[in-house]
Each structure stands twice: as structure tokens, then as C-alpha cells.
Amino acid sequence: MRISKKYNTYRSGFVLFLTTALLISCGAPAFYATAIEGKKLPISAEYSNNHAIEDYVAPYRTHINKDLDSVLVYCPETMDKTNTINGWQTTIGNLLADVTFDKAATLIKTRENRNLDICLLNHGGIRSVIAKGPVTARTAFEVMPFENSLMVVALKGEQVMEMAQYIAREKKPHPLAGMLIVLDENDSVKTVTIQGKPLQPEKIYNIATSDYLVNGGDSMTFLGNAVATYDLTYKLRDVYIDYFKEVDTLPIIRTERIVTQKP
């Protein structure tokens, strides 16, 4: 029996009608639930595949796999978030921050006529390596499996200072672009430079980030105090996929964004 096959609803409907009509006409007593039994049925390999479903899914699966596995760009060297550059940045974090900065800068300029200053993502949000060799859309799904989308928040300079202090305190190589944080030997924030200029506490800065972080993810509470928020309705994964399609070879970016100054 194929699952898609419909039962004869007219007949069963008629039977139901008859049954109901007879019961009502004779004034039969009502039915009451007297016993209830509940259980959980795990879907394991002991159930065979239903052929109708399997055959129906096959062309969809083939199309997705073909698309996900088509090569978009070449990666010359494995980028792994656990390999840091002086503890404060990674090649994968630098790449994702720079790419996200560029896409967000273009969009916020066109849509809101604003200039982007900074991009901040989270180290924990990088979920996989980009291995040396061909890079596919599947790689983007592995690096960014979440449905997070790109947002721009406007923060006052003093909140940007909080951001720098948060990064120094967390001691994590969060992906960062547009900003240089100089730490002293105790990892306290010494100076903050944005787009090559010193941070001004009263100035408003535009920061590209993810909706996850704006909504309080990773305790980046300073992002919640934004004076303005712009949802760019662009998934971070799509930001990466679109970039992968634009270039032939991924750059290995080693520039430092957070520097510890030796005494």
C-alpha cells in the first residue's frame, strides 16, 4: 500500500453519518474515555524507508547536494579558529570580519547613507574550519549553520569603549574589523583607534554585527544600548557564499586588530 493513496472518503463519510444518525435517533448513551495509553515511538533504522517518500525526496536531495558541493573558491591554507595570531586574532576570523564589513558598508551606505566604522562578530559563532582546497556552499553552511542575519547598530563612543573592554576581559579572538585596540601588559585597554582615528566618546559609530549578538548573545550587552538599529535582512551565511562566488582564491589575512604593547 502506498502512503499517498487516499481512502474512499465518501464511503467512510457515509458510514460515519449512518453510525452517528443511528446512535442519535435511538438516544444511545454517550461515550466516555475510560482508558488512555501513551508511548514514545523512536524512529530508528528498524523502520524501512517508505518508497513513495524516498522517491519523492531523491530529486530534491540530488539538486541540493549538487549545488552545495559545487566549488565556489579555492582556499590556499587551512583556516582554523583555534590557531591564533598572538592570541588575539585568527585568519578565519579576520576573513569573516573583513568580508562582513565590506558587504555591510556597501548596504548601509546605499540604504541609509551612513558610513560603517566597525565590524564585530563572535569567536563562538565560527563553527568549522575552512580547509585548504576547494571551498563550496556546504563549507559556508558548516562555518555558519545558524540563520543569523546581518545588522548594523549605532553606538556612542563610550559604548564602543565598553566593547573594547569586553573583548579585553573575555580574552577571545572575536572577529573584528575597522578598529585597533591596544592593550597594556595587563591586558587593560590603552588606546582604541577607529578607521585610523582615536575613539571619541561622544561620536556615534556604526557597527556591523549579527542579530544574535544584538539580542544579547554572548553577553555583549553594550550592543543592546544602540541609539539606532538597522536590519540588513541578509543572512551571514549568504554574505559568505556571495563573497566566495566573487573571488577565485581566499586571502589569508594576518593583520592584527588587537595588540598587546610590551612595556
Binding site: Y32, L41, I43
Partner: peptide
């Protein structure tokens, strides 16, 4: 994620108000 299906069976009896 479609790991399980739940099943609840209700048995009804005529005239037996619970």
C-alpha cells in the same frame, strides 16, 4: 527533528462517565 513519534490511545466506553 523527527527523532520520535508520540502515540496516545484513548479508549471510549459507552455510558461509562469517567
Amino acid at each position: 527533528y523527527g527523532i520520535n513519534v508520540g502515540r496516545i490511545d484513548f479508549t471510549f466506553e459507552k455510558g461509562k462517565k469517567s
